[in-house]
Design a protein around this nucleic acid. Sequence first.
DNA 1: CTGAAAGCGCTTACAG
DNA 2: CTGAAAGCGCTTACAG
Lengths: 341, 341
Amino acid sequence: MNLKQLALHLGLSQTTVSRALNGFPEVGERTRRRVLAAAEQFHYRPNASARKLATGRAGAIGVVFSSDRNLLLDPIFTDFLAGVAARSAESDTDVLVSSALGDEADTYRRLARAHSVDAVILSMPREEDPRVSLLHRLALPVVVHGRTESKLPYAHLDIDNEGAFRRATEMLADLGHRRIGLINGDTAFTFALHRERGWREALAARGFAVSAELGRAGQMTEESGYRFARLLLEFEAPPSALLCSSIFAALGAMRAIRDLGLAIGRDVSIVAHDDGLAAVRPETLTPALTTTFSSIRAAGARIAEIAAALAAGADPASLHEVWPVDIVFRGSTLPPPERAS
Amino acid sequence: MNLKQLALHLGLSQTTVSRALNGFPEVGERTRRRVLAAAEQFHYRPNASARKLATGRAGAIGVVFSSDRNLLLDPIFTDFLAGVAARSAESDTDVLVSSALGDEADTYRRLARAHSVDAVILSMPREEDPRVSLLHRLALPVVVHGRTESKLPYAHLDIDNEGAFRRATEMLADLGHRRIGLINGDTAFTFALHRERGWREALAARGFAVSAELGRAGQMTEESGYRFARLLLEFEAPPSALLCSSIFAALGAMRAIRDLGLAIGRDVSIVAHDDGLAAVRPETLTPALTTTFSSIRAAGARIAEIAAALAAGADPASLHEVWPVDIVFRGSTLPPPERAS
DNA sequence: CTGAAAGCGCTTACAG
DNA sequence: CTGAAAGCGCTTACAG
């Protein structure tokens, strides 16, 4: 059933039926009711492509993943996308997932020129991120999950990574820790840079030596968490506490602590960032893990809203949010052994 | 730049330009070259919606997630989607991700009536899955990741879950294990049923008692892996080996073994199914984990191909694949303690 | 409050 | 080998 047939059935023009369906105010109340009832009865749905062509709007937002960055292989992305998809469904917006085969820039060009999407979500931004200026040139609205140093007006939603890691470090310092290690994500990305800055500044503010060797960065897998933790803990003067940028890295770090015959909490404290993944819940581990927490699913949902606003013509300069991060204190953080007595 | 402008620039008709771009054979070689060069020069891309409207094909495949099933919250889904997206990009097909707000069936009806997609991928099927017959009624081609008992012709790609768990069980039996526990996914889903069947039949074939209490099913999280493992290991006659349906459940089971003061491998053997997630690699754990392995990313890629074939009109009855599963023997499986001496 | 008609940007019989 | 024209199914000035 298409619009023409529906209009014919109702004895109305396509114009009126279209207006009734789209909630235009000038349609008579009785007419609207009749139209809506018939549409319901025949399960009428406007053809998506036809509507897009006529309005010039794609009714979709895009999410692009570069294969080299392996973003899609990051398990937390599932949760992020769940948030995006759920909120987009509410506003009847499609979510287009594209994999960049070669150059990620090509993918954006394709999306822009084919008018496949009204806006895109950019994940894992870097401080200097060429994608932001590219999208600006392509006139494709973008909402960045995170932040860049770009001066261009772009919408973004970020969490306060710097504040979170500063406060976590301060909390450990308050417990008596002096040597606090950082197992971070790749500092090519802004989020990791911000976390490192929070950690570094908290240490400096207390007058602790900030030794570069205590900060390690890499992929946030169980394996690299293990490797970095072992490396740090085998120092002559090992850290008594570790800050981990992901729950997976924390699992690896916990394994390293155990493998060295040490006790988590009593010998080495751990704090990890938790994105709210259901597969591994910090509160159920042994011991329960202290975390900096922010739901990446909620971020995805809000980002979908921002993308929709952008698609509707909102000013990107007005769409900025930085969410605070909660710290949840649990059993994996104790005073360092020297002070525990 | 649109087709009209491009044609005008070339001094050709839209017809010829369109044909040249789409590789029709009747276009002159010189003409084709000119057209292609100009398209390249002006970065011409046909408007996706216009093309869809004209051809009647959406050029997209759909992936739907029901919120109640929380499929999107499953981290391995990221890898699956990575495979789908990468392969779809090669064939210039869009991947539409939809979240079912309320009824999943409504979402399929919407996709079908709005002609948003040419085919859909159905994940986490059940033995009796009403979605398959619904899609059949809606005339929306479907490729199932897994299997159902439906008699309707539907394309599918599955892995040999039954064979994998049968062989893993046999392998443990060959090592001398007599009590082998199963920590499974929710048996409402076919994959979990098949795994249970493989385990059960291998036990029966050896003449071992198949006690229902040794088989547990639930969410495949670290926490439920822990909970089930503890429960089984605290029996009077605990299992000496555990089969886990996911790497996350295995992590939990390993934690349970340690918490009980036992050694993984020496006291309790573990085998886990590995989907190839990068975040947690079984070969890097302590001890390295024996696994049944099948890349879910490769499955996603192949399923995208099948979906494309379906969209192009292939017969679903001819599109069936069941992939074998490798078993990779590592340090987490040893003979049971009674025999180890 | 309603309708006839043009137009969105393509593809594709049909004609030559 | 090439082109004029119709059509895909909507939306939206414009007219009444």
